[in-house]
Design a protein around this nucleic acid. Structure first.
Lengths: 158, 158
DNA sequence: CGGTTTGGTAAAGTGACTTGACGATACATG
DNA sequence: CATGTATCGTCAAGTCACTTTACCAAACCG
């Protein structure tokens, strides 16, 4: 996030004496999103990846950095290529990935996950899966599928 | 947003030759959330609040800063009180709010929105409402209500 | 070929954070 | 009442994920 995990507002208090309005759609999306993020970090830190900082999650956003060129990935993540390169340097230093020469273009590089990086990806997936399981149990499986399908449709629009 | 509009990952690419998995629940929540945030900022910047930075949205998170004490708000937002105080200083300098003495506790302050601050809150609400309207039209009104209700139930759990 | 665009990087600066320390007020206990 | 302790806001210094500016080298384009 940019700064990583900080972020934003979605609805606000009533002024003065007035009662609050109901939570609006922004807050409703943000809060479970925060919960997913938090669970991913907790599981990473407890699985041998204590050096995995919240900021690095940006790089691993769907569909992940594997095989991408730094410029392309920076554009996808909407940060400058310098900012991304800083994060890639940290991740390379910690052994999560490597920047390899691209045989097809001598100017370019390709990002390759190391075994350690792939293992971290596995933990992230597990963590997300655990959250999905917990939510499915809470809502009931059919209704969780409804939620997922509605979100997929919404993402298609956005 | 922290950092402003950047943020985090939720699912990742398949390694090497394998195909990608489907978008997981994290990504599905993050993407429309980003869209809401972006629309709020766009509307603010186009409505006389060009100096409203993305970082300030943090302070206006539901249910907003009105009447809160800085320490309490910092705890709610999970940032240090120093970090919040920095943002409050900026927002006070720009005329969005004031920190007033608390008559009940001489150590404490209370945050009060200025008219300008309340106007910005109004624009934020409008912006969220516009997004809701657009999504309701896309999904159909009944299905948008379903989405909202599922999210409310999920937030009740979290 | 020569001019322009594209990919990565180095350098310097910014701003939203952090931790540490502090004085002032509130509160709890003897 | 006195005295220790917890809490409030703030100052100061440092960190780090960014940004803008500037480059060089390779690719592409006529």
């Amino acid at each position: 996030m940019p700064r990583s995990n900080k972020s934003s507002a979605f609805t606000t208090s009533g002024d003065d004496g007035k009662p609050f309005g109901p939570p609006l759609i922004g807050a409703l999306l943000r809060m479970p999103w925060d919960a997913v993020q938090q669970h991913m970090l907790t599981r990473l830190h407890g699985s041998g990846f204590a050096d995995f900082d919240a900021a690095y999650l940006t790089v691993f956003q769907y569909p992940g950095p594997q095989g991408a060129r730094p410029s392309e990935l920076a554009a996808r993540l909407r940060v400058s290529k310098q900012a991304l390169n800083y994060l890639l340097g940290e991740l390379e230093r910690l052994g999560y990935l490597e920047r390899r020469a691209d045989p097809d273009d001598l100017r370019s590089k390709r990002i390759a996950l190391t075994p350690r990086g792939s293992a971290a990806v596995g933990v992230i997936r597990e963590a997300v899966g655990e959250v999905e399981t917990a939510w499915a149990r809470q809502l009931g499986p059919g209704r969780f599928d409804d939620l997922r399908n509605l979100l997929i449709e919404l993402n298609g629009v956005t």
